[in-house]
Design a protein around this nucleic acid. Structure first.
Lengths: 192, 192, 192, 192
DNA sequence: TATGAATGAGACTTCATTCAT
DNA sequence: TATGAATGAAGTCTCATTCAT
C-alpha cells in the first residue's frame, strides 16, 4: 500500500513532466494532467495540496533527475579534467538527446518558486559531485580560488547556455566546436 | 497626433514589462494590464491583435532595451579588454540596479516565440557591438577562433548567469569577486 | 445515475428552448442559460462542447418534439382526408396553444446548421407518417403525382404559414376560416 | 446636400443588406458595417438612433425591395392566371438567382421587430398588386371567398417555402415540377 | 457633419478546487 | 482511498456606443 501510494505520486509527476515538456507549464491544467496520469482530478489533491505545491514538487523532481543525469558516470578517482569533460558532455547530451528536457529547464525557472533556503540547500546536495570537483580543483591549486557558484557560472553554465541555443535550433554545433568549447570553458576556471 | 498613437502603445508595453517583472508572464492578464496601463481593456486590442502578439512585441521591446543597456558606453576605439569589461559590468548593473530586468529575461524565454528567422536576425542586429568585439578580437589573434555564439556563451553569458543568482538572492558577490569573474571569463575566450 | 446525466442535459435543453422562445436565439447567452437551467455556467460545457454544438443539438431536440406533436393521434387506418386534417390541426394547435413554439421555428432556421446529410436524413425520419400519407395518397391516385417535398410545401406549409401570422397577432382566424383553409389546401394536392 | 444625406443612409443600408446575406444578422457589427459602408463608426449614429433602429429600417428596406421584385412585370390587364404565374415565378427567381436574398428572408424574420401596426400597414401597401389580384379573383367568382391573408398563405407562400428548400440545397426542382407546383397552388385558391 | 479612438459591459470558455458518493 | 460532476471566478476578446477633435 505504501508503495502504491508512492506509485500514484510518481505516476502524476511523470505525467506532469511530460506535459510540461510538450505544452509548457501554462498548458498544464489539473484536469488534463489527471487524464494524462490516468487518475481522477480529485485524486491529485490527495497527493498534493494544490497546484502550486504540485509544481514545486515537480520542480524538485526534475532537478533531481537532471542532477543524476549530469553526474552520471563521473568517477572521483579520475583526473579532474576528465570528470569535468564528462559532466559537460552529460549536460550537452541531455539537451541533444531530449530536446524537451532543456526546453523544460526554462519552464521550471518560471515556476514561482519560493526558493526557500531549504529548497536551495536540498538542490545543492543533489549536485554534490560538482561541488567536490571544484573543491578538489582548488585544493590542488589547479582552479582559480573562486566560490563554487562562480566557477560553475563560468564553466558548466556555458554548456547549458550553448545547449539551449542548440536545442532551440538557433545555432548548430559540430563535434569539433564542442570539444573546443569544453577546452575554452576549462580555461575560464584554471589558473594560467 | 501621430506621436499620441505611439504613446499609448508605449504606455501599454511599459506597463506590461513592469507586470512581467513583478508577477511573471503567467500573472499578466489583459484586464490587469489594462488597469496598470491606465486604459480600458478593449483599448489594448486597438494596438495589438491579441495577447500572443502583444507578448511577442513585448519580447522585442525588452530585448531592444537590454541591447541598449548592455552596449551603453562601449567605445570601439578603446582596447578590447576595456570594451569587454564595460559590457560585462553593464549586464551586471542591469541586474543589480533592477532586479526585475533579469528575472524578466527568463520569463521572456518562455514566451511561445515564433523564433522566426526574421525575429532572430532582428535581435542579432541589436547586439552589433558585441559581434564587432568578437570579430575584432579574432582578427587581432587575441580571441580563440570560435563562432561568436560560442564566444558569447563562454563569456558574457557567465555574467548573466551570475547576475541571475545574485538577483535572486541565491548568492552574493562582492566587488573583488566580480573583478575576478570578469578576468576568469576573459580567460575563456582568449588564446593562451 | 445514468438517468441523472440525461436529466441534466434535458434540463439545459428545456431551459434553452424556453429562452429561445422568449428572447430569440440572439438573446441566449451561456451565462443566462445557466441561470435559467439552474446550473453553473461551467456545467453546460460538461454536456456540450460549445455554444454551436449546444444550438445544433437544441435544434434537433425541438424538431423532434415538433414531429411528435404534428403526428400525434394520426391513425394510418383512418381515411387520408382525416389523417390530413389531424396533422393540419396539430400544427395549428401547436401554434395556438403555445405561441412560442412557432416563433421558435423561424429562430432555429437561423441556426448556422451544418445541414449535413445525416442531419437532414434524421429529420426526415421523424416525419415518417407525413411521408406515408403522401405516398399512400399517390398510390391510391388521389394525390397529384408530385414529390413529397412539393406536396408538403403546397399543403401543410400553409398551416405553418397561417399559424405564424396568427401567432404573431398579425391576423386572426376563426374556426370556419380554419376549416375552409384546410379544405383549400387539400385542393392543392388532390387531383381534380 | 439633402441628397447626399440620403446617399449615406443608402450606402449604409446597402452595405448592411450585403453583410446580412453573407454572414447573417449575428455577424453584423457596427464597426464592420462602418468599414463595409466606407464610413466611420460614429457616422452611422447620425443616421440611425442605434443598432435596433438600424435593423428595423433595414428590414423595411429589404421588404420593400422584395415587394418590387415580386410584383415586377405584373400587368393588371392580363388574365388573373398569368398575373399569378408571374408573381410565383418572380418569387422563385429571386431565390434562384440570388440565394442570399432568401437566406436573408429568414434572417429578417428573426429581427426583434416591433411589428407595430404602422409597420404592418406599410408593408401591406407594398404588396398592393397582390391584394388586387386576390380581390379581383374573388369579385370574378374565380377564387374562394377567403381573406387575402389566407389566400396568400395557401398559394404564394408555397413558392417561398419551396424556394427556400431549393436555395438551401435541401431539394432540387426541375422546370416541369415548377410548373406543376404553380398549377397545384392555383388549385388551392380557385373554386372547383 | 464626420471621424475613429476609447470605453467598459458582457460574451464565450477554461480551470482549480470541492464534495457527495 | 478514489472518483468525477459541479462550481463559479477569472481569462480573453468583441462590440455598441460616446465624444473630443
Amino acid at each position: 500500500m505504501a508503495i502504491n501510494t508512492n506509485d500514484k505520486r510518481l505516476q502524476i509527476l511523470e505525467a506532469a513532466q511530460k506535459m510540461v515538456a510538450e505544452v509548457g507549464i501554462q498548458g498544464v491544467s489539473m484536469q488534463k494532467l489527471a487524464n494524462r496520469a490516468g487518475v481522477a482530478a480529485g485524486t491529485i489533491y490527495r497527493y498534493f495540496d494544490d497546484k502550486d505545491h504540485l509544481l514545486e514538487e515537480l520542480r524538485q523532481f526534475v532537478v533531481s533527475r537532471m542532477a543524476k543525469a549530469v553526474q552520471e558516470g563521473v568517477d572521483a578517482d579520475k583526473p579532474l579534467k576528465e570528470q569535468y569533460r564528462t559532466m559537460w558532455l552529460n549536460i550537452w547530451r541531455v539537451a541533444a538527446s531530449n530536446i524537451d528536457s532543456l526546453k523544460t529547464r526554462v519552464q521550471y525557472d518560471s515556476i514561482p518558486s519560493k526558493n526557500s533556503y531549504e529548497t536551495r540547500e536540498q538542490e545543492r546536495k543533489m549536485f554534490a559531485q560538482v561541488d567536490n570537483l571544484f573543491n578538489e580543483g582548488k585544493k590542488q591549486g589547479v582552479f582559480k580560488n573562486l566560490d563554487n557558484e562562480i566557477l560553475s557560472g563560468l564553466s558548466l553554465e556555458a554548456s547549458v547556455s550553448l545547449a539551449r541555443k542548440h536545442a532551440l535550433g538557433l545555432y548548430q554545433l559540430d563535434d569539433a566546436s564542442l570539444e573546443a568549447a569544453i577546452e575554452a570553458s576549462w580555461d575560464a576556471i584554471i589558473k594560467h
